[in-house]
Design a protein around this nucleic acid. Structure first.
Lengths: 85, 85
DNA sequence: TAAACAATTAGGCAATTATCTAAATATCTA
DNA sequence: TAGATATTTAGATAATTGCCTAATTGTTTA
C-alpha cells in the first residue's frame, strides 16, 4: 500500500492512470499528453510500475503500458475500514 | 484529493488515523505511540489537518484530535472509477 | 549497414519533506 | 505569581522527489 500511495501522490501519475483506463498506450503516446520531457514521463511510469499499478509489454520498438487496478484493493479496504466506526 | 493523498503518503500519519479511529486523542497521547519527537508528531498532525483528515479542539492545555473521514469520499470515488471498464 | 526512431538510464540541480533541538506560547496549580 | 506541563513554532539539516539535458540501448527501415 505504501508504494501504491506513493505512486498516487502525484497529479501527472494519476492522469496517466486515467488515460490508461481508456486504453493501452505506448510511452510516447502517453508522453504526448504532457508538457514534461519524455525521460520524466518514463520516470513516472517507472514509479507506477514499481507500485504495480501499470504493466508494460515491449512490442518491437514500442513499450505498451496497461493499467492494473488489482493492487488498489488493499488501499480501498483500508479506507473503508477507516470509515467504519 | 491532492492534499488527502499527500497526507496519506506516510506510514506514521496513516497510523495516526488508525489510532484516532478508535478514539479521540491528545497530541501528547498520540506522540506516545511514536518514536519521533513531539514537534515531528505535531508537524504530521498539521499535515493531516491541512488535508482535513483530522480536526483539533483545544481543551485547557490539551489539544484533542479527531478523525474526519468525509474527505476520503472523493478519493474512494476516484479509485472505484479507475477500476470500472 | 547507417540513419532514424522509441524508450530508458545517468547525472545534476532545485524544491519539498521529515526529522531534530531550542525557543515560544498557553494553561494549570502549588 | 512561579514553576510545571502541553503543544506549537522556528530554524537547521539530510533525504527524497521531480525535472531537465545528454547519453545509451534496442529496433526498424531505406
Amino acid at each position: 500500500m505504501n508504494q501504491v500511495l506513493r505512486a498516487l501522490n502525484d497529479p501527472s501519475r494519476r492522469r496517466m492512470l486515467e488515460l490508461l483506463r481508456e486504453k493501452d498506450l505506448t510511452a510516447g503516446e502517453l508522453a504526448a499528453h504532457f508538457e514534461m520531457s519524455k525521460p520524466s514521463v518514463s520516470h513516472h511510469l517507472d514509479l507506477l510500475r514499481q507500485a504495480e499499478l501499470v504493466v508494460s509489454v515491449k512490442k518491437g520498438q514500442f513499450v505498451y503500458y496497461s493499467i492494473n487496478t488489482s493492487v488498489l484493493e488493499d488501499l480501498m479496504f483500508w479506507l473503508v475500514t477507516l470509515k467504519k466506526n
